[in-house]
Every structure is written in structure tokens, then in C-alpha cells.
Amino acid sequence: MIVFVRFNSSHGFPVEVDSDTSIFQLKEVVAKRQGVPADQLRVIFAGKELRNDWTVQNCDLDQQSIVHIVQRPWRKGQEMNATGGDDPRNAAGGCEREPQSLTRVDLSSSVLPGDSVGLAVILHTDSRKDSPPAGSPAGRSIYNSFYVYCKGPCQRVQPGKLRVQCSTCRQATLTLTQGPSCWDDVLIPNRMSGECQSPHCPGTSAEFFFKCGAHPTSDKETSVALHLIATNSRNITCITCTDVRSPVLVFQCNSRHVICLDCFHLYCVTRLNDRQFVHDPQLGYSLPCVAGCPNSLIKELHHFRILGEEQYNRYQQYGAEECVLQMGGVLCPRPGCGAGLLPEPDQRKVTCEGGNGLGCGFAFCRECKEAYHEGECSAVFEASGTTTQAYRVDERAAEQARWEAASKETIKKTTKPCPRCHVPVEKNGGCMHMKCPQPQCRLEWCWNCGCEWNRVCMGDHWFDV
């Protein structure tokens, strides 16, 4: 396979590697080409510095992935760790964990309700045991953590790749202090920090972006993250068709209702045909949960890209028209025109101005929308079919299609509260000796007794199943 190397943020060049090629071997190839010592090179990928003893497969490097290699003399205490030698983080029983690669970060837990604080980093599902597709590297999971809308060759929703760059020099040479644990960490600028490894760059702020994971991409090709779309790892039924499908869209209502993408497309087109989208002054033209839940309008309007190009163009047109109407304007009634106009409040005669090729020149009556006339309008008909009709959803289907309910059931079956801080902690095999993952707590306690870890627990039921 081919990976592209950008040395000291210059133009990239291809390097041929195998899945079992080590990072140090990659350094040696680059060092020979650039005429520099291999031990002064640092390989940066997806916000993480890659260790010498890791392989291309370990690092989730795919065909035509772009890695950054910078030349920086080692500072005291760094060289041993980078070589894969006596790194205290690798000691058996050590409590410190390697910062998780962005290629394996899962933010789907952050669609849980606000009262489930902490689960994004504490609760991990076991539903990723799908067998890898044919042709994928051994052991590589097909679980997708992110979804994007690819405006490039795909023109559809695709699995996405999370990447990070330095907000100062805009190069992907920043190593994160810690990985993101929720969508806010990724979507809110300057929320996460790190250290830029580019020479002479003092940058410390992280800037995240997404790429389409279905095809090789260049540095400049980015895609918009659709953070309401998630892999259906909890096997929730769709609120409309009641099938279990994946991926799904999880509405931001209190129940976190789930809808499959085909039904979401149908829901949007139906509402669009009836012009029953909601115009929100802050958000724009949007839709609420299909069950009509309060405070559930979709905030990231790129989710409506699921409509496809033709329907999305209609959505944008109707949204612009609705904006004009909300501002007190009118639409030209001549067939084939429909231009938005903003006449004076007491102006009865409205002319669709033909300047700049935008208007048709038609003069019409503001009251009856017919060709302009003197005197009273002959008839004014009330528009028919403008009443909002509820999208029919079966109550039982709505009850079963809740992301929140599956989460709470998982928590109930696989977790116990920490005796000190009461945060839910998952036990997935292993011994009875637990350690609270909350940095402010870190209590060592017994899963069996529910009390602080002691010699009695150690001698009596340390390794009970």
C-alpha cells in the first residue's frame, strides 16, 4: 500500500509500505531520502505521535493516508518512550493509558441525555464484534464512529474520518494533550489543546475536521460531520418502519427517538411537499423529531443533505422563500418566477423588478396576487391545505425507538455506581478489583462488596467470576 509523507509540512511524497511495516522502518526510509538522522524524526498522525514499535496496521493507516513527519531533536526523557523501550505506560498493571487514536474515538455516547454525564468515556458498548469485510486488514473493525456528507465523488452519507490540525499553522502536526470525549470537544473551536510539532510553531489549540472515509482524499478535501447519525450498535428499532437498520439518525429530543435514513428521507420529502418545515429565527429551515417532541429541531442543517441534490435544492429554495415571508415580504405569483420581494408595508401595487435578471417585471396586487387592478379585489380565496398535519407515529413504536432507553438498560445490566462519587462504572470481565475512572475520584473498590478495596476482598473473592 501507499502512504503519503509530508516532511516538515512540505509537499508530500509517496512511500510504499506493508501492513506489518513498523513506524521506525518508515522513519528509516524517510531519513534516507531526506539525509537526516532517523532518531530525530517524529511521525504524527490523527493528533498522535506514533511509536517506533507500532506497525502501519496498528495505527489504522489506510491506503493513501497522509502522515506528517517532522525533524525535531529529542528532548530529555522522550527518546526512550518513542523507541518502544522502557515506557512506564506499558508496564503490566499500570494505570496510565495511551491517548486514544482519533481513528478509534467514539462519540456516540454523547447523544445520551444530559443526566448521563461521564458515560462518553466510561461506558463502552460490546456491539462492535462484526466481522471485518472481505479485503480489510485482519482485526480491523467495521464499526463506524462518525458519518459525514461527502460532496465529492460519493454525493451521499458516508463513514467519516476525524482529523485534527494546529489552529495556528493549519498543519496536521499537532499532538493532542488528551483525546475528545464528546461532540462539544470536536465542534467547539479551541476547546481542546495540544502541542504543535512543526518547527518554530508555538500553536497549542486544536482544530478538528472530518474527511470522507470511503475514498482517498487530499489535504484540502473536508466534509461536514453529521453528528446525529450513528451506527445502530444498540439495535434500536426505527420509529417509523420498526426495522432494525444501521446507520440511524438520533433526534435530540428527551427520548432520543431513532429513525433509519430511508424513513428520514421520506419524512423530509413529505414535509417538504406540504411546505411544513419549521422556520426558526436562529436555526433556519428545519424539522423536529418525527414524533413531534418539543425542543427537538435539527440544529445542523447539513443533515438535510440526505435528501439528495434535487430535493436539497428545493429545500434551500423553500427556506429562502419562507425567510422572505417571515420578513413581511411577498413572492411573485407569476408561474416560473417566484422571486422574493420586500415592498413597503402599505404598498398595494407590487412590481417584480426586472433588474439584474432576477425579476420578471410582472405587476400584481398584494392582496389577491392577481395582475394589478384598481378598486376592490374580486375574490380572495383562503389558501387550502395549509394546516399542519401531524406525522403519524405509532405510540408503541415510539416507545421502542428510544436510544436513551437502550442506554439505561445497558447501564443497569453492566454497571454499578462507584461507592464514593456514584458514577456508573462498567465491568466487562476481569477481577473484582475496580478503579473509578473519574479523575477527581480514582477510588479503588470491590465490585462484589461495593466497598473500598481491602485485604478481605483480596483474599476471599479477588478473582471470582
Rank of each mutant, 00 (worst) to 15 (best):
M1L: 08
V5M: 03
R6E: 04
F7A: 03
S9Q: 04
S9P: 00
S10T: 08
H11W: 05
H11Q: 05
G12D: 05
P14M: 03
V15D: 00
E16G: 06
D18C: 09
T21D: 08
T21E: 04
S22M: 06
Q25Y: 07
K27Q: 00
K27M: 02
K27V: 03
E28A: 07
V30L: 04
V30D: 00
V30S: 00
A31Q: 04
K32Q: 14
R33T: 05
R33A: 06
R33P: 01
Q34K: 06
Q34M: 07
G35F: 04
G35W: 02
P37Y: 06
Q40A: 08
Q40Y: 06
L41Y: 02
V43D: 00
K48Q: 07
E49W: 01
R51Q: 15
N52Q: 04
W54L: 11
D60W: 03
L61K: 00
D62S: 13
Q63S: 13
Q64L: 09
I69W: 00
Q71W: 05
P73L: 07
W74V: 14
W74Y: 10
K76W: 14
K76Y: 13
E79N: 10
M80G: 14
M80N: 11
N81C: 15
A82Q: 13
G84K: 11
D86K: 10
P88Q: 10
P88N: 10
P88K: 09
P88E: 12
R89H: 12
G93L: 11
G93W: 11
G93F: 12
E98F: 09
P99W: 10
P99C: 10
S101W: 07
S101E: 14
L102Y: 08
T103G: 12
V105M: 14
D106I: 04
L107G: 14
S108H: 10
S110G: 10
S110V: 07
S110P: 13
S110L: 07
P113H: 09
P113S: 11
P113V: 08
G114M: 08
G114D: 14
S116G: 13
S116A: 14
S116K: 12
A120Q: 13
A120H: 12
A120P: 15
V121N: 15
T125R: 10
S127R: 10
S127I: 10
S127L: 12
R128W: 10
R128D: 15
R128Y: 13
K129V: 11
S131A: 12
P132R: 12
P132C: 10
P133G: 11
G135T: 13
S136A: 13
P137T: 13
G139L: 12
S141N: 11
S141K: 14
S141R: 12
Y143A: 08
Y147Q: 02
Y147C: 01
V148G: 01
V148S: 00
Y149N: 02
Y149L: 07
C150Q: 00
G152D: 14
P153C: 06
R156M: 10
R156Y: 07
V157R: 03
Q158C: 11
Q158P: 00
G160Q: 01
L162I: 12
L162G: 02
R163T: 13
R163Y: 15
V164R: 00
V164A: 10
Q165H: 09
C166E: 01
T168V: 09
R170S: 10
R170G: 14
A172E: 15
T175P: 05
Q178H: 11
S181V: 08
W183V: 02
D184T: 06
V186E: 01
V186I: 14
V186N: 01
L187R: 08
P189I: 04
P189R: 07
P189A: 09
R191Q: 08
S193V: 12
E195T: 13
E195V: 12
C196P: 01
Q197H: 11
S198P: 02
P199E: 10
H200P: 05
H200Q: 14
P202H: 11
T204N: 10
S205A: 11
A206K: 00
A206H: 01
E207Y: 06
F208C: 06
F208W: 05
K211M: 13
K211I: 13
C212E: 01
C212G: 01
C212V: 02
G213P: 04
A214K: 09
A214T: 07
H215A: 02
P216Y: 09
S218R: 08
S218G: 10
D219N: 10
K220F: 09
K220L: 11
S223R: 04
S223E: 09
A225V: 10
A225E: 04
A225S: 07
H227P: 15
H227Y: 13
I229A: 03
I229L: 11
A230V: 09
T231D: 09
S233W: 11
S233H: 12
S233D: 14
R234F: 05
I236V: 12
T237S: 14
T237L: 06
T240S: 15
T240Y: 06
C241T: 00
C241H: 01
V244Q: 06
V244C: 04
P247V: 06
V248H: 01
Q252R: 08
N254D: 14
R256M: 08
H257N: 00
V258E: 00
L261F: 08
D262V: 04
C263F: 00
H265G: 08
H265C: 06
C268S: 08
V269Y: 03
T270S: 06
R271E: 05
N273R: 03
R275F: 02
V278M: 10
D280R: 07
Q282M: 10
L283Q: 09
G284H: 03
L287S: 01
L287T: 03
C289M: 00
V290E: 00
A291V: 08
A291N: 11
G292Y: 04
C293Q: 00
C293S: 00
P294H: 09
N295V: 04
L297A: 05
L297V: 08
K299T: 11
H302K: 10
F304V: 01
I306S: 05
I306E: 01
L307R: 00
E309S: 13
Q311Y: 04
Y312Q: 03
Y312E: 03
N313E: 09
Y315G: 00
Q316F: 07
Q316S: 11
Q317M: 12
G319W: 05
G319A: 09
G319T: 07
C323E: 15
C323V: 11
C323T: 14
V324R: 04
V330Y: 06
C332K: 03
P333M: 03
R334S: 08
P343L: 09
P345L: 09
D346T: 11
K349V: 07
T351M: 07
C352A: 02
C352P: 02
E353A: 08
E353D: 11
G355L: 09
G355E: 14
G355R: 11
G357C: 08
L358I: 15
G359K: 12
C360Y: 02
G361L: 07
F362C: 04
F364R: 02
E367C: 06
E367N: 12
C368R: 02
E370T: 06
Y372W: 07
H373M: 02
C377A: 02
C377V: 02
S378M: 10
A379L: 11
A379K: 08
V380L: 09
V380I: 15
F381A: 07
E382A: 13
T386L: 13
T386V: 12
T387R: 11
T387N: 14
T388S: 14
T388F: 08
Q389S: 15
A390M: 11
A390S: 14
Y391L: 05
R392A: 12
R392S: 09
D394M: 06
A398F: 11
Q400F: 13
Q400D: 15
Q400R: 14
W403M: 06
W403K: 03
E404G: 08
A406G: 10
A406Y: 13
S407I: 10
K408N: 12
E409Q: 08
T410D: 14
I411W: 09
K412I: 12
T414D: 11
T414Q: 10
T415N: 13
P417T: 09
P419D: 02
R420M: 14
R420T: 09
R420H: 15
C421N: 00
V423P: 00
V423A: 15
V423I: 13
G429H: 15
G429Y: 14
G429S: 15
M432S: 06
H433C: 05
H433G: 04
K435H: 15
C436R: 01
P437E: 06
Q438A: 04
C441F: 01
R442W: 05
E444H: 15
E444S: 15
W445C: 02
C446I: 01
C446H: 00
N448L: 11
N448Y: 05
G450Q: 03
C451T: 15
V456G: 15
C457I: 01
M458H: 12
M458E: 15
G459L: 15
H461V: 01
H461W: 00
F463K: 00
D464T: 15
V465E: 15
